[in-house]
Design a protein around this nucleic acid. Sequence first.
DNA 1: CTGAGCTTAGAAAACGTTTACTTTGCGCAG
DNA 2: CTGCGCAAAGTAAACGTTTTCTAAGCTCAG
Lengths: 332, 332
Amino acid sequence: MTVTIREVADAAGVSTATVSRALSGVQTVDPELVARVRQSAESLGYRANRVARALRRQSTQTVGLVIPDITNPFFPPVVQAVEKELRRGGLSLLLCDAGDDVAIEAELVRNLFDHQIDGLLISVCDRIASKPAVELAASRVPVLQIDQRAAAEVPYVGVDQADAIGQLLGHLREQGCQSFAYIGPRQELSPATERLDEFLAQVAPLDSAAADRVCLGDSSLSWGHQAAAKLLDRPDRPDAIVCAADQIALGALRALSEHRVKVPGDVAVTGFDDTVLASACDPPLTSIRQPLEELGTEAVKALSAAIEQHLSQPRSALLKGELIVRASSQRK
Amino acid sequence: MTVTIREVADAAGVSTATVSRALSGVQTVDPELVARVRQSAESLGYRANRVARALRRQSTQTVGLVIPDITNPFFPPVVQAVEKELRRGGLSLLLCDAGDDVAIEAELVRNLFDHQIDGLLISVCDRIASKPAVELAASRVPVLQIDQRAAAEVPYVGVDQADAIGQLLGHLREQGCQSFAYIGPRQELSPATERLDEFLAQVAPLDSAAADRVCLGDSSLSWGHQAAAKLLDRPDRPDAIVCAADQIALGALRALSEHRVKVPGDVAVTGFDDTVLASACDPPLTSIRQPLEELGTEAVKALSAAIEQHLSQPRSALLKGELIVRASSQRK
DNA sequence: CTGAGCTTAGAAAACGTTTACTTTGCGCAG
DNA sequence: CTGCGCAAAGTAAACGTTTTCTAAGCTCAG
């Protein structure tokens, strides 16, 4: 049914070795033969069987991508960029969704090894529990953690949370805000904990009471609503609320509106991630746009460099988010 | 480095053939030997090389999924369900994003064949131009089109648009609406054209003037805004606006609010797809929830049945959407 | 003129499995 | 007791490439 290198060789009147060499151009072959081989391959519609090639070369030109949950809007742009950049380098993508389950994640990694992947990109489910899987993987092929990491010694591509928090606080201060609150998830994922840690570290010099106005729950709209309502009841009501996700901020906006608190007049609100919600809601939300495509692209570049150069460790990278200022924080 | 079947055979003191048979259980092997082989495999941490297996078996246990754009929120739930259901059957997923480009799409399909995929799921970029690629694919392996189709004779899994439009119109009529408008994309993708065709067919008996109130542009918020504004200027202002996407409906809501038209009091508005926007906007939007997970699951079931039974054509399926009634259309 | 060295292409091995084929040994019927 | 048939395990071929090894032919220096 499908045409093999043998048939091309017969058609061109040469050996299979010559066909392989002529097509790959790895060794000098008589130009006249190359032309004949090309011609035969073309007219027969020959396409090399990548499975056979992979078995012989011991390299599948395939990388695995494991993510916790593709319906999390963070991931699609990353996945898209990863796939595109891989294709540019002739690599293919085996995508796995762990469903936020560490056991499944570990099984997926094993399964990817059965497929003899050349490298692995992973955004882990759990900062702690995912560590063994990541370390095991890193002992076999180049591995790069994306956004959420579990193993400190395994390379990592992510967003500079310190810088992002810095941009937010700087902007809010410029707008005249003086007392700050933070609403975020309790969940112990690495970027979220970094965000909180950085908020605490950077807000301290601006507002010594801010640490008391930290509300930890989850990343839902309803938690944002609930936490904001609680903040409004306090005697030391803040004039800026930094939310760790747009969903949270949306909930906060709703609570504020119910309490007849003006945004941004009385309280400035900021989100995080710059999802479609940020521009769709009322007032539109100041947020941090994370460079998701760049994250994917950079991850692939680093990983494929490592694969090509037979390095066991790809290079790490930290990218900067971008502050998108909208009405919810503009008091001037 | 990695342990092969040879080493397991040596450890168990049998031939590689026996190891293969013992582990796969395809032929009767002395139970005592099976135990010994299992034991050796276990203790060496043997995992079969899927590349070698694929070459020999002429089956990779891998299927390709080609979609136009994964950042379209329609797809992540489908992809997730596909991947999960594939895994249940021991299959793996090669994901490709065509970036809405037919040429890339065709190249992706060819590339997937180089990978010797056992089957293909595809949601095409273009109703017309994608046809050759789909047909070529279908001549090689079982192919199933998802949601957007290009080749009528190739099996298809999608959502019953006639039923969805029927549900919407039925609901609006119950709410007392009498004059209908439609805002949708001009873009010629199959579900969109079906939606429009069904709207026209089903609205005719209810409102003979509705065909004049069809506005075709794209799927953006701004088009929804623009089209709704135009509808309001007309003497025969409708009391129900059916939008082919939530984004469009959101734009329409905004235009209506600017014109001080009450929703749903003066005009009922409905969206489509039940994205996060539908529940987040004000008023919350009545919409059609498409069974995205089910779409992915059903597609995989049909495809893997075809693969297992060596049928060239998987079965087609048409699933029903669900009307989600929210404030934007509730007049009673 | 010979042979060392190089280039080119074919022959064959190798990648790690599965499976067709062969062999061995055993049970049982004639 | 012989031999037929069957089950179970081993041997080797096969999957489609790439690459090592080998051989042949040519160049050119001594």
